[in-house]
Design a protein around this nucleic acid. Structure first.
Lengths: 112, 112
DNA sequence: CTTATATATTCCTATCCACGAATATGTCTT
DNA sequence: AAGACATATTCGTGGATAGGAATATATAAG
């Protein structure tokens, strides 16, 4: 999970991933679209590959990169456990109770 | 989005977020549970706060930190656009077609 | 007002990593 | 086999940042 997040957290890599969302692409195409230098793109792809976010298919001299679904699925599974943050009242209820408690404590004195 | 990812990509911050998933907590509690030194926890919380992932509520000398739902919702919205990766056939079809093309090209010669 | 408790900030340092430049590897074409 | 094309790797460097130690700030308690 951390590996996935770290890989995605770099802006250029994020852009590469966003590009690949629309389908597999060769390196040169990404170089052109993102206006980055070829070595940097290759290096970012290496990081993404090591993180398991992409895989490569060889087509003559070209390498076609594509997203691997697995890490994105894992991200989604992880995120699901945070749904309650906005779907339940959950912390809102908690915060409300705490606030009431705070007000009670402060009764009779000036704030700050 | 990048801001959110960067904040989550650091292991200790990730742990803090995981802790806060179960509800708001004061700093000292996290220090104790994660066995980190207090200044580091405060610094990580600062980063999380700047990234909009948490907010603080003052309770006497203590500060109670809680997750903010918004960034997690945004993450989920972003992730939704990647669902097709595994729900459709999408790239699988694409890859299949490419593979057929490759085999055709290679017909009659030795691999590598 | 002094002390204790809880948290935040500052300063320093070592480490990591993204970039640029140069070069290497691999494959196609002729 | 030679050159062209596509991609990968290496090396060096500057900037960002996490951690440690010390200190500052804020509130509570006596």
């Amino acid at each position: 999970m951390i590996t996935t997040l770290r890989a995605l957290a770099e802006p250029h890599r994020f852009q590469i991933v966003e590009l690949l969302r629309d389908g597999p692409r060769p390196v040169g195409d990404m170089v052109h679209r993102l206006r980055l230098r070829q070595p940097q793109v290759s290096k970012h792809l290496r990081v993404l590959s090591d993180a398991g976010l992409v895989d490569v298919r060889v087509d003559a001299q070209r390498r076609i990169y594509a997203l691997r679904p697995a890490p994105f699925q894992e991200l989604e599974v992880w995120l699901e456990r945070y749904r309650r943050l906005w779907e339940d009242n959950f912390q809102r209820l908690d915060a409300l109770l705490d606030e009431l408690k705070t007000k009670e404590k402060k009764r009779g004195r000036t704030k700050r």
